[in-house]
Simulated scan of single mutants.
Amino acid sequence: MKRKLVVGIDVGKERCAVSLFDGERFRDFSVPSSPEELLRRITPYLPGKMSSVLFVMEATGVYHLKLALFLKERGYPVSVVNPFVVKKYAEMLQKRAKTDPVDARILAQFGFFASPPPFVPRDKKAYLLEEIQKTIEDYQKRRTEILNHLEALHHHPFPHPRLQKLYEEELQRIEETLRTLEKEAEDLALQYAPREYRLLLSIPGVGKRLACAILGILSPLTRFARSKELASFLGLAPQIDQSGKRKERAWLSKRGNPFLRKLLFLAALSASRFNEQCRMLYERLLSRGKPKKVALIAVANKLLRQIFAILRSGIPYDPHYLERKRSLAFQGT
């Protein structure tokens, strides 16, 4: 459907740059980062039908989410686009300036001419799962820092006993907080998607943290038609660079969710040992002379395909599933 008006919004912490574009001219605003105030300011310029307007914004951490949910709940079409895509669109337009008003105009133009896909909100529990997992990572980083401080004090020629006690007390508080958060995440996952959570844990290499993160960040999985789309979304898809006689090069795009990509890579370390199919792939690549990091990335991709297949089929992990399926098909012929 052709939009009569697109509202490009460059969302900031304190203010939003807003640009209304009807295909010919722009109308620009700067408003406080309050969804209610933004809607109040631009309502007089909106067309009568909600379906004739589209709000477009970039995915900017948590800042855009409150506004996108606010507009969606009120029935307005919303699109949240990848900043990388918008950056390439700006380069195509040969835009050299990088200011909030310019970014809002680019978003409005992009929404009007490119028709980006609609924003699909996740379940509240999914957002909470993602938030808890990121908090767990933050506390794990703090725990590592304190352990490093304690190790340094242990080797210091004049260790201060009071400092060591302070670090040990802080470490104990962090450990208790981590246990509480991990229990809360598991309980929430069992409330939100118990079947999917248990299916994920059936895969060797997939632990509770990764399972909770997948349910939180990738929900609903139905938005991905193929596992390759999922790999691309997470930045695990290879990029190919080859032109003329120049030798072909390949590297990871790393354009997706860095947090989930990191968890998948860590899970690949375990899967390369305890997941039969992943272990065979890992050993085969090493035998061909591939670096360990390259082999682990391939294992992460393999693990991701297993995750996709199991959640789609609803069948727990079985390393011999395909062999049994082929055997049954052969017996039936």
Rank of each mutant, 00 (worst) to 15 (best):
R15Y: 10
L54M: 14
L296W: 11
H154R: 04
K302Q: 15
D22S: 11
A189H: 04
R198I: 00
L234F: 03
L230N: 09
Y167W: 14
E24I: 15
R279Y: 13
S79H: 05
Q239L: 15
M1C: 04
S253V: 02
Q133M: 02
G207R: 05
E36N: 03
G289K: 15
L5Y: 00
A271S: 10
L286Q: 11
A213I: 02
K49Q: 09
L46I: 05
E184F: 03
S253Q: 04
F308P: 02
V6C: 12
L163F: 08
K141R: 08
A309N: 06
I146D: 07
F70E: 02
G12S: 06
L285Y: 14
H320E: 09
L69N: 06
S79E: 03
E36D: 05
L190Y: 00
H320S: 10
E169P: 01
D103W: 11
V86T: 10
F113V: 12
F330Y: 11
H154K: 05
P117S: 08
P204G: 01
I307E: 01
Y282W: 10
R284A: 07
A152C: 07
F70A: 08
L150P: 05
Y192I: 02
L328W: 13
E248A: 15
M280T: 10
F330W: 07
L264P: 12
V7E: 01
H156C: 10
S253G: 07
M50D: 06
G289E: 07
I174A: 06
K228I: 02
H155E: 03
G111I: 02
K66A: 14
R324N: 14
K66L: 14
G207W: 09
S34A: 07
Y127T: 07
K87Q: 11
A213W: 01
E137L: 03
L281N: 06
V294G: 03
R249V: 12
F110R: 08
